[in-house]
C-alpha cells in the first residue's frame, strides 16, 4: 500500500502541530550529550544532526517498568485489580530510526509467541511510527550486514527521507500512516517520477556476510570463541537495556503499606543472577556462557523459533559497552573461524 508523497520543510512542523492536537507526540530530543525520545509539542524541540538516540524506541511498546496488575491486602485476604488496557495511550513517535522501527517486528514475534501478550499488542497497535531515514551513520552502524538499510521501511507507518533541500520524501506505508495523512491531507503533496530517495541515504558498509550466519554460529557453540570474547565482559547489562529488541524481563512485586503492584522489569541474560537456581546451581555459569546465550538467542534461537533475528544492527550495544565489546566484530570473527 506504499504511497509516495512530498512533505515540504515548512509543512513538517505543521504536521507535528496537527498531530499533537489529538495525540501525544514523541521524538528524539537533545539533552546535552544525550539524545532521547521525549514528549514534544513542536517540531522545534526535535534534535537534528545525530546518528541515533542513545536509547532505542522499545520502551514505547515494552516500558522499563510495566504494571501487570495491582493488589490490596486487608484482613479478609487479598483483592486484585486488573489493569485496564483502555488506559494505554495512542501515541505517535516521530523520527524513529529505521533500525529501531525494524526491531518492532522482532519484538512483536517475541510477545505474540503463544500466548500473545495483550499489553504489548495494545501498546504496539496504539503507537504510530513516523520513521526518519538515516542520512548519516557511524562506524558502529551495521544494519546493512543484517538485511536492513538506512532507508528501510520495515516497522514504520510513514517513512520520511530528508532531501538536500530540507524537504521530505514521505512513504505512506500502513493504514496507521494513512490516518496521519488524513489529519492534514493538504500538507502532503503528490509527486511525479522517482524521487531517488537512495541518493539521500547514509552509506553503511557491510561488515560481514550474513548468508550462513545461523549455521556458523551453531557450529561455534562448543568452541572457545565466546569465552575468549567475553573475558572482559562485566555483565553490566547495558547492551541489553539499549538494545531495540532485547526483551528478557523479570517479574517483581512492589508494595507500599497494604497496596502494591506486580511489575515486569527489563532484565538481561548477561547478569549472573538471571539463571541462578535457588540451589546455587547456575546453568549459565560463566560470562562466556552468558555472552554465547546473547548471541545464540539473537542469531540462532530466534530465527529458528520465531523466524526473525534478534538484532537489527543499530550498534548501540557496542557504542555503550564500557569495555568496548563489539557485536559486529564478534560475529565477523565467528563467521571467519567457522
Amino acid at each position: 500500500m506504499s504511497k509516495i508523497k512530498k512533505l515540504s520543510k515548512e509543512s513538517f512542523p505543521l504536521l507535528i502541530k496537527k498531530i499533537s492536537e489529538t495525540q501525544h507526540v514523541y521524538g528524539p530530543v537533545s539533552q546535552g550529550k544525550r539524545i532521547s525520545y521525549q514528549r514534544i509539542s513542536s517540531a522545534d524541540e526535535l534534535a537534528s544532526d545525530f546518528i541515533i538516540p542513545d536509547m532505542s524506541a522499545k520502551s514505547f511498546v515494552f516500558p522499563k517498568i510495566e504494571k501487570l496488575f495491582s493488589y490490596t491486602k486487608n484482613k479478609d485476604g487479598v483483592e486484585v485489580q486488573d489493569i485496564n488496557l483502555d488506559n494505554i495511550p495512542h501515541r505517535v513517535v516521530v523520527g524513529i530510526r529505521p533500525c529501531d522501527a525494524a526491531g518492532m517486528e522482532s519484538l512483536k514475534a517475541i510477545f505474540s509467541w503463544d500466548p500473545s501478550d495483550p499489553i504489548f499488542e495494545t501498546r504496539l497497535k496504539r503507537t504510530t511510527f513516523i520513521g526518519l531515514a538515516c542520512n548519516q551513520a557511524d562506524d558502529y552502524c551495521f544494519c546493512t550486514s543484517l538485511g536492513g538499510s538506512p532507508g528501510d521501511t520495515k516497522g514504520s507507518d510513514i517513512l520520511l527521507t530528508k532531501t538536500d533541500t530540507g524537504d521530505y520524501i514521505a512513504e505512506i506505508l500502513t493504514s496507521k500512516g494513512e490516518k496521519i495523512v488524513t489529519l492534514a491531507p493538504d500538507l502532503f503533496q503528490d509527486v511525479e517520477g522517482d524521487l531517488q530517495k537512495e541518493k539521500f541515504l547514509a552509506n553503511v558498509p557491510k561488515r560481514f556476510d550474513n548468508s550462513d550466519l545461523q549455521n556458523k554460529i551453531n557450529a561455534a557453540f562448543n568452541t572457545d570463541v565466546f569465552d575468549e570474547y567475553a573475558m572482559r565482559c562485566m555483565g553490566c547489562s547495558a547492551c541489553a537495556f539499549v538494545c531495540p529488541i532485547c526483551a528478557c524481563f523479570d517479574i517483581q512485586d512492589e508494595t507500599k503499606g497494604s497496596k502494591g503492584q506486580r511489575v515486569r522489569l527489563w532484565d538481561s541474560c548477561g547478569a549472573k543472577l538471571f539463571t541462578l537456581h535457588t540451589s546455587g546451581h547456575n546453568p549459565r555459569e560463566t560470562q562466556g556462557a552468558r555472552w554465547r546465550q546473547r548471541l545464540m538467542h539473537k542469531f540462532s534461537y530466534m530465527p529458528e523459533r520465531l523466524e526473525v533475528r534478534g538484532c537489527v544492527g543499530c550498534g548501540r550495544c557496542s557504542r555503550r559497552c564500557p569495555v568496548d565489546m563489539n557485536i559486529a566484530e564478534s560475529l565477523n570473527q565467528l563467521i571467519i573461524d567457522n
Partner: peptide, 15 residues
Amino acid sequence: ENRMKCGFGKCGRCN
C-alpha cells in the same frame, strides 16, 4: 527445572 519468571516463553530464562 530451570529458573523461570513468565512460564510462557517470553522472559528469556529457562531455555
